[in-house]
C-alpha cells in the first residue's frame, strides 16, 4: 500500500525542522573552524562573522568572491597551524605520534582478543556461556572513572606508571562493546560452514582463523574503528596514567595547551582543537555507514 503523500505544508515543516537541527548541531564545529582561520588581530573582533576580513596589498577590503581572498584565508589558517605545530610549550607532532602509537597497539589487541572471545560466545555451546555474556554486558556499563583510582594503584604496583602500558595492555584482553558487536556478527554466519570445516578436519582454532575471521572483515573493521576513536579521544586515561609531558597524547596535550593559554589566542586554541578532531572526521567520512550501524546494534541486544 503506497503511503499517502504528505501535504506540502507538512513537508515544508519537516524540511525546516531538519535544517534547523543540522544548523544547531553543526554550529559549534563551524564556529571553531571560523575561528581557526582568523588572523590574530581579528580573533576577538565582534564584526567578524564566519569569514575573516582580508585586505589586498593596497589595503582595500576584499570580498569573498574576489581573487586573492581565499588565498589570504589559507595563509591565515596555515599561519595558525604552523604556530600550533611549532609551539614552544606543546609538542603536538610528538603528541600525535604518541596517540597513534597507543591507538595502534590497542586496536590490534582489541580486534584479536575480542574476536577470540566472541567466537567462544557465538560458535561454541557450553554451560556458563550465558553467564559470561551477561558479564560482558555488565562491564559495558562500567565506565573508567569508577575504577581509575584503584587501577592507578594496580599499575603503580606493576611499575607501569610513566609508560604507555596502562593505555593499551587492557585492550589485549578484549572489550565489552567489541565482543558484543562481533558476537552478533558471528551468530549471523551459517553454522553449516563450521560443520563443513569440521568434516574437512578443522578444529575450532582453524575454523576461527580460516572460516569465521575472513568472513567477518566488515565487523572487524568496525571494531578497529571504534577502538581507534576511543583511544584517540580518551582523556581520563592519559590524565591519570601519564606523568610526563613527553608522553602526552593529543587529547592531553590539547588540554595542557588550552590551560597554558587560558584560551586567550582563541584562533590558535581552535586550530589545535581541529588538529585533534580532523583525523576523527576523516575516519567518520570514510566509514560513516559502518560506524552508524555499529552504534545502532547497541540498542538491539538479544
Amino acid at each position: 500500500m503506497p503511503r499517502r503523500r504528505p501535504n506540502p505544508l507538512v513537508r515544508l515543516a519537516i524540511s525546516s525542522a531538519l535544517a534547523l537541527a543540522a544548523l544547531l548541531f553543526a554550529t559549534p564545529l563551524l564556529w571553531m573552524a571560523a575561528t581557526a582561520i582568523r588572523p590574530a588581530d581579528q580573533t576577538l573582533d565582534p564584526k567578524v562573522g564566519l569569514l575573516p576580513r582580508m585586505e589586498s596589498p593596497d589595503h582595500r577590503t576584499l570580498s569573498p568572491v574576489s581573487p586573492g581572498y581565499w588565498s589570504g584565508v589559507a595563509g591565515a589558517a596555515s599561519d595558525n597551524l604552523r604556530a600550533v605545530l611549532s609551539s614552544p610549550t606543546a609538542d603536538f607532532p610528538l603528541y600525535i605520534q604518541n596517540s597513534l602509537r597507543v591507538a595502534l597497539l590497542s586496536v590490534v589487541g582489541m580486534v584479536l582478543s575480542s574476536s577470540i572471545v566472541a567466537y567462544g560466545l557465538a560458535r561454541l555451546r557450553w554451560r556458563g556461556r550465558t553467564a559470561v555474556f551477561i558479564l560482558v554486558l555488565a562491564t559495558m556499563m562500567m565506565p573508567f572513572t569508577v575504577i581509575m583510582a584503584p587501577q592507578y594503584l594496580l599499575f603503580r604496583n606493576l611499575g607501569w606508571i610513566g609508560t604507555f602500558r596502562p593505555l593499551w595492555v587492557p585492550a589485549w584482553f578484549g572489550g565489552a562493546f567489541s565482543i558484543f558487536l562481533l558476537r552478533q556478527f558471528f551468530l549471523g554466519i551459517p553454522r553449516e560452514l563450521d560443520e563443513a570445516a569440521r568434516i574437512d578436519g578443522c578444529g575450532h582454532w582453524r575454523t576461527f582463523w580460516l572460516i569465521i575471521l575472513p568472513l567477518s572483515k566488515p565487523a572487524l573493521a568496525v571494531v578497529a574503528l571504534f577502538q581507534f576513536l576511543g583511544s584517540w579521544n580518551d582523556f581520563a586515561g592519559p590524565l591519570v596514567f601519564l606523568n610526563h609531558e613527553r608522553m602526552y597524547t593529543v587529547a592531553l596535550g590539547l588540554q595542557m595547551y588550552q590551560n597554558q593559554h587560558g584560551g586567550v589566542p582563541w584562533n590558535l586554541v581552535m586550530t589545535a582543537s581541529l588538529v585533534a578532531t580532523i583525523p576523527v572526521l576523516v575516519v567518520f567520512l570514510l566509514a560513516q555507514r559502518s560506524i552508524v550501524e555499529g552504534v545502532a546494534t547497541q540498542g538491539l541486544k538479544d
Binding site: A22, F25, T27, N233, A251, L254, M270, A276, I291, V292
Partner: peptide, 24 residues
C-alpha cells in the same frame, strides 16, 4: 546528511569539544 551532522559530535575528542564550547 542531518543524521550524520547530529551523530558526528559524539566522535569529536572530548577535550576539543569542551574547548569549542568554552569559546561558545
Amino acid at each position: 546528511l542531518v543524521r550524520a551532522v547530529i551523530f558526528f559530535p559524539t566522535l569529536v575528542p572530548i577535550v576539543a569539544a569542551s574547548i569549542g564550547w568554552m569559546w561558545l
